[in-house]
Simulated scan of single mutants.
Amino acid sequence: MLKLIGAALVLFAGTMIGFVQAARFAERPRQIRHLLHALQRLETEIGYGQTPLPDALRRMALVLPPPLSGMFADIAGELRSERGGTVSESWERVLSDNWSSTSMRAGEKEAMLRLGASLGGSGKEDQLKHVRLAMLQLQDEESAAREEQQRYEKLSRSLGVLGAALVVILML
């Protein structure tokens, strides 16, 4: 009886591990899509609203889900604080501190760091070009993430169940 309960727990745990990994594959393209919407909003704020950057970032944070909302709110907060750092420094510091809480990878981070290096230090048209470039790079990353999701999401679920079943068979 005790072995059956243990086997059921192992099977349940292995299945859940597979489903959690599958959820990670699904979350990455979703977060990239949210980031693309945020950059479209930033492009509008820069191009038409002529909103100061901290205000634009704060507005973006209000419409984004966590953890992205927290990153943009932190950047806006740092720009408003009296630390005296540049936009690039604040952007890089916040992204480095908070990136691990996202499901995104190095390609997306690199695109965002390049964007942060160009914001606030040049004219409106130049900033808009950099935002558009970052959006193009993120669109490429999103398509790669969607392909990866299609390829590995179902595989992760299956491996979780089958791996747990193997452990159960070896236990009994």
Score class of each variant (00 low, 15 high):
G163A: 09
V63K: 14
L138E: 00
S101M: 04
S69Q: 11
S101E: 09
R83T: 15
L42V: 08
G163Q: 06
A38P: 03
D97W: 12
G70H: 10
S103I: 00
S69W: 15
L11M: 14
Q21A: 14
M112R: 00
V94F: 07
L9H: 05
E89N: 09
A134C: 10
L64Y: 08
E147Y: 10
E125N: 09
Q40P: 00
A22T: 12
R105S: 01
G70V: 13
L62S: 14
D97K: 12
E78H: 15
L64Q: 06
R93M: 09
L39S: 02
H130W: 10
E92L: 11
R114C: 03
E89V: 05
W91R: 10
A73M: 15
E108V: 04
P52L: 07
S156T: 05
I46V: 15
L115H: 00
E110H: 01
G77N: 12
A144H: 13
L162Y: 08
R28I: 07
S118K: 12
L133D: 01
M171W: 13
N98E: 08
L113M: 02
I17D: 03
G84C: 13
L113A: 01
L35D: 00
H34A: 07
I169D: 01
E45R: 08
Q149C: 12
P66K: 14
R41C: 03
S143G: 05
R28W: 02
L36C: 08
A22D: 03
T44I: 11
L42N: 00
W99L: 03
L35Y: 00
E89K: 13
K124G: 01
L166E: 04
P52F: 07
I32R: 01
P67Y: 08
N98L: 06
A22N: 07
P67F: 12
G163H: 08
E89M: 08
G77W: 12
R59H: 11
V63F: 13
